[in-house]
Amino acid sequence: MSELLWVLFDLVLAGLTVGLAWVAVATRELRRGVLLFVGLGLLLAVIWARLRAPDLALAEAAIGAGIAGALLIAALRDEIGVSAEPEDGYTASRRLVDLGAIGLLLALSWGLLDAFLLSDGVRLAEGVAERLGESGVINPVTAVLLNFRAYDTLLELAVVFAAVLGVLSVGPARPALEAGSLVLTGLVRWLVPILVVVAGYLLWVGAHAPGGAFQAGAMLAAVAVLLRLGGVAHAGLPGTAATRWLLVLGIGVFVIVGLSVMFADRAFLQYPGDIAGVLILVIEIAATLSIATALALAYLGGRPVGWEADCDSPQHRVNRGAADRGGDA
């Protein structure tokens, strides 16, 4: 394809994305906004593929559009009949915000333009390529995520953990849906094993090709979403105690691996070169399970039934009702 055709393609794709984002943000009808947002996620996945970021294309489709979309659509059900507030004319504060937005647009363009003029465009790419051989994996994105900048990923798992702790403490889960129609349950039964296999494949392939723990975790979470839509109340999650262990598994294994190499006279998370690949795979397996559990709980929207049954000693159970109203007097 000639150069010009690519430019045309880029213009159309970028224009569509911005247009879709505009409508999604501006619309007063929440349902429309959410659906457009999911569409926006898919367009972004195409852009990531176009800009040669296949790992991101997978992650965007699975997490950015998939799981986030599922969360938003489930939230829509809670807000039936609610629309975004009517926009009452062109008030002063609106004008101020618009003015600020235009100023920010210009400033950011100016800063980035200057940055591009200043930079040689190499940045860290060469450094990663040089040390890739020592990382234990071949996919450079996985090498950055789980070796060079593994600490970021550890804290990222902590962010997921924090969010799910918040979701669990805010309130009880949504009531389960009634069992779906025959076609839906049939489809679910059919898809679940396929998705589990795909998740395993994505996890395994992440070492040398696009994929990895986050994409695989999102895929497993999709299984939970499907099960829940098909009428399975617990969405495939095991009992309370096991679910708690699953939640902490990712961070726990990550930290334990990091500390064990530290006790072998290395820095925290400094894997020995010859077993780096194995350690990364172990961490990724644990992280996949934790991410899937966390996203599944997020989709339930709160505490599953019986989540806090073992939190207090028996004589205190009577005060349960008071507990659900919170601790602040």
Binding site: Y151, L155, G166, D324, G326, D328
Partner: peptide, 26 residues
């Protein structure tokens, strides 16, 4: 960039803790 992640971690935990009271205002 790590600072961004820690900022988010501080933010999310602080929000979840702030909502522990459970009242409408909280």
């Amino acid at each position: 960039f790590n600072l961004y992640v820690t900022l988010e971690l501080v933010g999310l935990t602080a929000v979840a803790l702030g909502a522990l009271g459970g009242s409408r205002d909280a």
